[in-house]
Design a protein around this nucleic acid. Sequence first.
DNA 1: GTATGACCAGAAATGCATTTTGGGTCATGT
DNA 2: ACATGACCCAAAATGCATTTCTGGTCATAC
Lengths: 244, 244
Amino acid sequence: MWSRWKGDGLPDDNSSQRADRILDAAARLIEHYGYDKTTVSDIAAEAGVSKGAIYLHWKSKDELFEALLLRESMHVLEELIQHIEAHPDGGTIFGLFQYGIISIVNNPLMHALATRDARVLGDWARRGANSPMMNEGSMFRKEMVRQLQAVNVIRSDLDGDVITYILALIRYGFLTIHEVYPADQIPPLDAVGKTLAILLERALAPEGGGDREAGRQIVINLAQQMRVFLQHWMGTKDKPPTQG
Amino acid sequence: MWSRWKGDGLPDDNSSQRADRILDAAARLIEHYGYDKTTVSDIAAEAGVSKGAIYLHWKSKDELFEALLLRESMHVLEELIQHIEAHPDGGTIFGLFQYGIISIVNNPLMHALATRDARVLGDWARRGANSPMMNEGSMFRKEMVRQLQAVNVIRSDLDGDVITYILALIRYGFLTIHEVYPADQIPPLDAVGKTLAILLERALAPEGGGDREAGRQIVINLAQQMRVFLQHWMGTKDKPPTQG
DNA sequence: GTATGACCAGAAATGCATTTTGGGTCATGT
DNA sequence: ACATGACCCAAAATGCATTTCTGGTCATAC
């Protein structure tokens, strides 16, 4: 799916499966040891392939890592879409925020990306904050708030960009505060998520409740747009080392 | 005021003033260079006194720093009390939150303390997260939320400890997100503060608005309690090196 | 055509001798 | 008394030679 550099035909299933296995291995290792401490040889060994095989799939360690990040982003986005479609409150900020955060908490790599965790991201983060995965997210969210305000799923009496910023700040605080809060006083995570969602609903939802269906559609569309954006960006540089 | 180890009489004005000047110098230096990079000699030079003089006031560099932190905390608390007394919305979470955050944003040292900024706090933070200034704050806030709920300035339909945690998380996110948010998209600070306060009001204030006067009184009392707590704790270990 | 792993070179880590730094003290001066 | 700054010494920083590591390549094997 996400790895399509195989010329003009359909993705080679064998190759694609192996690429996936390699990314699985990389994910396991990097989540635990961080980008710096996991070597390409480690990944190869963990995946049960040779080091050379890895360079048959990606030009460099960096590109492997970015492919991994892309895959995980795709997963999260996909899951988000499914959740929104399946769940009745999918179109409300209530459901949206709660699910958006949970999916990040459950995905160590996305968690690290969202918090710029230097321990996990290591040199990659230090070198280049250039990946669109690092920055375009806020654009996407800005647009989402704007459109959600247009269909009155979010109240329009406050500036959309400020709302976006505040939402980001809450998300960031949610993901990072454990570093400074007395550990024995942290309430259960799901209680926090649920309460936070309720507060957000009160603060941002209009009286009537707005057009949920429209909200749902907007978020799905935007998520899809984000996916093609990421995919396209990746496609332009995730070329194979050989056979152009 | 805060430095009262001078035996039984009133604080020695000359000595106390000089201590203040030294702390001023220390603040200036540490805000800029961080705890590790500012030496005791630097502080002495900046304050225009000899190194030995500093050890006439405090037993160690650590204690000087903690005295500084205490002084700044006292200032902030004092200002908070004054603001609450002077301002009509002093007793509401609206005003409370807004002012509480502004006072931290305006005080580099308190900002560093609230965010555990290793660049500023340096070795002191690394060695001991033992100072009550580091931990007791959350206790204080927990109690505040509890009492505010009791007089219905904060709605009682959600768990107080979770609310406290969420408030802390928002504050922390507010103070730290700039590290990961695209710099050119950060809205003006006061717009964010104001909007955030409005959202909080909507999310946490009851229909009627609750008893503002009672809210005001509670916060003032608690702030005062916090002050004597800090003062007392400091008093038991901020003894002079000689003349006990 | 595809996979492998020994191999390469630059970068990073290690070990160690040497120098500098910086809390903290105290003999001396006022 | 009180203030000073030269002085002390452990700890940290520096410089440097040597070793290890590791991203990336490619001759060889299948």
